[in-house]
Nucleic acid binder design. Structure first.
Lengths: 116, 116
DNA sequence: CTAGATTGATCCGGCCGCGAAACGTTTGCG
DNA sequence: CGCAAACGTTTCGCGGCCGGATCAATCTAG
């Protein structure tokens, strides 16, 4: 089941999912915060602040703040790297998995109802 | 060519497009602003402030501010409704069309490079 | 012609994210 | 051992977005 998508369909999909997200107003995440969250859950571990900053081409303080926010929401967790205590490892949580699963299903639902 | 999408693929697509957007840092729009812009371009005209606020379930000042920002970027335009001068009609611009076309192509590109 | 309703903009106090710079901690290297 | 480098955090001032209340302009009903 390949994913073939025209530009117009792509925009319609983005629109539908975006409007759905804006409406029910969950945690209200920034594009950066959501991108960071998805990187943690979809890219292979381990995840450090510096690595995430490089991946997203964003300053380190921005990553720290995003981690503050996402951690406070319980969507991910920080842990000291005991091997090299300078590092902070970012880990997934059950709540984050649930949140992203919901997001994914919302996108899938939006895709299913696309005009042909 | 239907669009079939699993939850994981949906998240991967969202991730790829979101990261691409965060990286090259175009105008840096809020989720609300982008949703509003897409509504103007994809939903049938006419578009009023009140209508857009209802569509997105957002306060009127929020819509006004989003229109300020998007108008200042040249992505859309305000025009007084001459029939009922209380209304403001929101219209598309060439620049906005180009911007959304780029966004659509970025999403399509991200979809094309999804892991199978 | 006037009173009330409707529409969009503006004012207000508050909150949040931004990048640059300085900081404290930890590590590795001479 | 001592010192520079690496890592993540904190501080700083700044600017943007937030919703509720209010405003001026406009339309409509009586």
């Amino acid at each position: 089941m390949p994913v073939e998508l025209g530009t117009r369909q792509a925009l319609a999909l983005w629109h539908a999912a975006l409007v759905a997200g804006v409406r029910d107003e969950g945690p209200d995440l920034t594009a950066r915060q959501l991108a960071l969250l998805l990187s943690v859950y979809l890219d292979p571990a381990p995840h450090t602040v510096r690595g995430l900053a490089a991946t997203l081409k964003v300053s380190k303080p921005a990553v720290t703040r995003a981690l503050d926010r996402l951690g406070q929401l319980g969507l991910l967790r920080r842990r000291r790297d005991e091997a090299d205590r300078r590092n902070v490892l970012v880990e997934r949580t059950v709540k984050g998995s649930v949140f992203l699963n919901d997001l994914g299903e919302r996108i899938v639902r939006a895709a299913r109802e696309l005009p042909p």
